[in-house]
Design a protein around this nucleic acid. Structure first.
Length: 968
RNA sequence: GCCGCCAUGGCGGAAUUGGUAGACGCGCUGGAUUCAAAAUCCAGUUCCUCCGGGAGUGUGGGUUCGAUUCCCACUGGCGGUACCA
């Protein structure tokens, strides 16, 4: 029995695979536990050491629960549709299905290398027609439903049609795109196409023209969460707002329930806050303003109806439909100029410049409360799609309105007296109302209610709740996604493809470029044309497949339903969901939406998909840079040379092959990325230092490797190296370094395979857990991994004698040994429950050190320890368990339970403090009473020494904890 | 700006949730073993110290017999978000 980690990894990984050790039976007698990792998108660069952090944590929980008697569902699959594969196809000509298959295989290999206990028989892949058939079916169901606000749930479209036939829109409370009024007679008189258009206004999956994020470079629209700072998250291309005809999901209908549901789930505060922010609920009033000389007027939304007397102007969004009508002849030129200006400005300009701009339309509105005449402006600080796209501007109590008023010389009327609230800002809803007729003297909250009431009485508005969240744009003009299961018939009425014709698969193509906003699918004319009409050519975004995948794992091969009713009734929901924080808003929110929809239509029994959610911290890597300077040689020549980051400008240098001179730095030189494999981290004067050694440069010249090729090209930019020499005579350059997210592009990704090959999967797993709390961000560093390796070997050595032979004894464990064991059992059991894996590893180390010291080799102590360590070091545990004669796999062996009798202490060491400062310790029997302890402590000679000449005011004795003398 | 999280030795981190701060590991120092190195083992390692002690968990205050832990104010770092009316 040799401690050969590579051999153990191979042996047991093969064995588990062959024997399907981790297969999850559909065993409905045992309690279920569902542990899920977030769906990975299999990128071309494979896993780096940051990914497994969550996988290992969830695997430990899965394994522990399995041993504790649960039927554990712990699946893994792939989110395989998406832009990167398609961009790669455009760049290289490799079909997305091919690159996806390759990347998926590589991910799986890397995961297996880590010894993760997935049931691969349940694996799913979103680009598999057997899977996306159900993605299409679910979205089809969304299309076939509308949202009834009076019942607060989705209902079938057929019920809406019945209602419209009988009542028209009279009394209808539905989530809708636009407010709409139609009588039953009008409805009945409509053509099929007209009816279909009207129904679009209510469908939960609907097609409409709206302002969307258009990314020219990617040739597609993007959802709000795919846009960061005016640029696409994928590829960092500019994004602009454009009105386009697009499919969307009516997530706004569910805003309130998505918000309320957060109170019932165990997510971190931060994650809940992010979801709350994204939904962005605010309550206020919808107020109608008339326009002088026009019929109709317009509505504005405000959260501060109490400040309505301070309204000195109105602002509507430049894209607002009224702009055209309102603009007077005199102002026409100014408005047109402004619209041109706004049109030219990109989203990026708007965000970065944040200038006060606008133009006067020439029109005036009338304040519904006091009849005041207020000018109407347009300005880009008012957004088309929030509220009504129009505001009443109150410069006295709103920062932006004030800046605008100051720039345009508009009157400011103070309406809130904040003098009672020093330090309050304009945003704080506090103060006493002034200059406001009947509101005068009221405090803000009271005034908001009073103003709203008055507005309602006058019939000029109503209380309203607004949400920042926008409906979810669900079309992409791309190839590599699920086709929308829609066919437009001869009347151009969109018809859902019936279930028996699903899935709608993608046509075979080899050119995926999107041309001027048209999906590449439009070029597949054979595919587009069907006997029933013309196919929809937009595909769904990547979130379509990942919205519901956790349900498919419950019943992955069901040909007749997205999940069988028995399966979902048994598995219910995800007990623990582990993944990166980058999915905190979009993925979680959208899958919660779909889950709630499926709940409404009776397909799932729970209201929330994920009971508990853990975001693992990011593992960052050092990003190292080599510095390029100019050697200004004595002969006047300028040579680019590589220098240490610590060499200052003006230093005189003599460099081999270039000569003497001094160093200058300029902008054209700067720094270049250094791939991590050529960087050596050393410790110099207790500080870590990152160096490029001469030997690494030589190594780079030899290696046939992508990073090496890049580095060779880089190194050619310098004519020579200004080496430092260390104590051992090795030549090196000092590098500068910063911490950052691991990625292939920054040449700082560390492959877990490399670590497993060197230390074994068990060591890698325990080391990642040992780094610190799983939810905290931390830098990757291999310093310390040797300590974990040493620990594993010491653990192993408890079992083997000289000559690698198993050497355990049948003697019963001593009291001391049993105490060590049961302390360990309790600590590990409790800490796994708390997801505190780093302290579990420490506990194993402590126990191993203590047992080693006692030379313990007793089966009664060691065998339970093997079962305990199995979730952490599955290979080593399996080997030892079977060597000890265990039946079957250790991963199905019972989880040990601790017994209080072994944990009981005979005596307890008490810290003795004087005025809170600990001075000494005393031993007392565990069962000693407060009185006994106080008496004995007072009598102690050492204690008396401290008490000499002082008066004891009070003695605090906390049994089993401590003693404190309060002295004067 | 707003929201959330975090701050403890040279480093990663621990502290039974208000009770001996620094567990465990790395690094470092010394020693054993070795021809030597690696590996392994043993001891030490928060700081200051006149060797009696003293100070100490980002800073300043508070509550308490007692605060890394609770409260208030601030500083710094990370993440998210932003003309959202």
């Amino acid at each position: 029995m040799k401690f050969d980690v590579q051999a153990l990894d191979r042996k047991w990984q093969d064995h588990w695979k062959e024997h399907k050790t981790y297969r999850t039976p559909d065993d409905t007698d045992r309690p279920k536990f569902y542990v899920l990792d977030m769906f990975p998108y299999p990128s071309g660069s494979g896993l780096h050491v940051g990914h497994p952090l969550g996988y290992i944590g969830s695997d430990i929980v899965a394994r522990q629960k399995r041993q504790a008697g649960y039927n554990v569902l712990h699946p893994m699959g792939f989110d395989a549709f998406g832009l990167p594969a398609e961009q790669y196809a455009i760049d290289t000509g490799v079909h997305p299905s091919e690159s996806t298959a390759r990347n998926t295989a590589r991910y799986r290999e890397q995961m297996e290398r880590l010894g993760l206990s997935f049931d691969w028989d349940r694996s799913v892949n979103t680009s598999d027609p057997n899977y996306f058939k159900w993605t299409q079916w679910i979205i089809g169901q969304v299309f076939e439903h509308w949202y009834d606000r009076s019942a607060e749930r989705a209902r079938p479209m057929s019920e809406l049609v019945t209602y419209l036939e009988q009542h028209g829109t009279e009394g209808l409370q539905a989530a809708e795109s636009e407010p709409m009024t139609v009588s039953a007679t009008e409805w009945q008189a409509m053509s099929e196409k007209e009816q279909s258009d009207l129904l679009m206004n209510y469908r939960l999956a609907f097609r409409s023209v709206s302002y969307v994020n258009w990314c020219e470079a990617l040739g597609t629209v993007l959802a709000n969460d795919e846009v960061k700072d005016g640029r696409s998250e994928r590829g960092n291309h500019p994004v602009e707002q454009r009105p386009m005809l697009q499919w969307s999901l009516r997530i706004t209908a569910y805003a309130e329930r998505l918000l309320a549901g957060l109170e019932t789930v165990d997510y971190s505060e931060g994650l809940k806050a992010q979801q709350v922010n994204w939904i962005g609920k605010s309550t206020g009033a919808l107020v109608h303003f008339d326009i002088e000389g026009h019929d109709g007027g317009f509505d504005i939304f405000t959260t501060r109806p109490d400040t309505i007397y301070g309204t000195t102007f109105m602002v509507i969004a430049p894209e607002h439909e009224l702009v055209e009508q309102l603009t007077t002849e005199e102002q026409r030129g100014e408005i047109d100029d402004y619209l041109t200006y706004v049109g030219r400005r990109s989203e990026l300009d708007r965000m970065s410049e944040n200038k006060v701009t606008g133009a006067f339309t020439g029109a005036y509105a009338t304040n519904p409360l006091n009849g005041a005449r207020v000018p109407i402006y347009i300005a880009e600080y008012v957004l088309k799609d929030y509220g009504t796209g129009a505001i009443m501007a109150v410069p006295s109590d709103d920062e932006r309105d004030r800046r605008f008023a100051e720039k345009f010389g508009i009157e400011i009327i103070d309406v809130v007296d904040k003098s009672d609230y020093p330090g309050a800002t304009l945003k704080d809803k506090v103060g006493k109302i002034i200059n406001s007729d009947f509101l005068n003297g009221m405090e803000v909250p009271e005034a908001i209610a009073a103003a709203t009431r008055r507005i309602e009485e006058l019939g000029r508005g109503t209380e309203q709740t607004n949400y920042r969240i926008r409906d979810l744009v669900f079309s992409r003009q791309r190839y590599w996604g699920e086709p929308w299961p829609i066919v437009y018939d001869a009347n151009d009425v969109p018809q859902l493809v019936p279930e028996d014709k699903l899935p709608v698969t993608l046509p075979t193509m080899d050119d995926f470029r999107a041309v001027s906003g048209a999906s590449p699918l439009e070029r597949a004319s054979d595919w587009v044309t069907t006997p029933d009409g013309r196919r929809e050519t937009d595909t769904m975004p990547a979130t379509a497949g990942s919205n519901w995948y956790y349900l498919r794992y419950m019943d992955p091969h069901n040909p007749g339903a997205f999940v069988g009713q028995d399966a979902v009734d048994y598995w219910q929901d995800v007990d623990l969901y582990v993944g990166g924080a980058e999915h905190a808003v979009s993925h979680i929110l959208y899958s919660r939406l779909i889950h709630k929809f499926l709940f409404d239509i009776g397909k799932v029994p729970t209201r929330e998909p994920y009971k508990k959610l853990l975001n693992q911290g990011m593992i960052g890597g050092p990003i190292s840079y080599i510095h390029l300077g100019i050697l200004l040689a004595d002969d006047g020549q300028r040579h680019p040379i590589w220098v240490s980051s610590d060499v200052a400008e003006g230093t005189s240098l003599e460099v081999d092959g270039v000569g003497k001179g001094y160093l200058v730095l300029d902008e054209s030189t700067g720094t270049r990325l250094t791939p991590l494999r050529f960087v050596t981290e050393t410790s110099v004067n207790n500080e870590s230092s990152f160096r490029l050694y001469h030997t690494s440069v030589e190594e780079a010249q030899r290696l046939d490797h992508q990073d090496a090729a890049y580095f060779r090209t880089i190194l050619q930019q310098g004519a020579a190296f200004a080496w430092h020499t260390d104590k051992e005579g090795r030549q090196y350059l000092e590098l500068s370094v910063e911490q950052g997210k691991m990625s292939k592009r920054k040449y700082n990704a560390v492959n877990p395979d490399d670590i497993c090959d060197r230390y074994g999967a068990d060591c890698f797993r325990m080391y990642e857990m040992f780094l610190g709390p799983i939810d905290q961000a931390k830098p990757w560093s291999v310093s310390g991994i040797d300590g974990v390796y040493r620990f594993l070997r010491r653990f192993w050595n408890l079992f083997v004698g000289n000559g690698d032979a198993l050497a355990v004894s049948d003697e019963p464990g001593s009291r001391e040994e049993m105490k060590i064991l049961h302390t360990l059992i309790r600590k590990v059991t409790e800490d796994v429950e708390k997801l505190s894996f780093n302290t579990c590893v420490s506990a194993f180390m402590v126990a191993t050190n203590e047992l080693t010291k006692l030379n313990c080799n007793k089966l009664a102590v060691l065998e339970p320890a093997v079962r305990l360590i199995a979730p952490f070091a599955p290979h080593l545990a399996e080997e030892l368990f079977r060597a000890l004669g265990g039946a079957g796999s250790v991963h199905h062996a019972a989880w040990p339970e601790w017994e209080e009798q072994y944990l009981r202490e005979d005596s307890i060491t008490y810290p003795v403090a004087f005025n809170g400062k600990t001075r000494l310790t005393l031993e007392f029997a565990a069962e000693a009473t407060r009185q006994d302890i106080e008496a004995a402590a007072r009598a102690d000679a050492q204690v008396q020494g401290y008490l000499e000449g002082k008066e004891v005011r009070k003695v605090i004795v906390v049994p089993k904890r401590m003693i404190n003398f309060v002295v004067g």
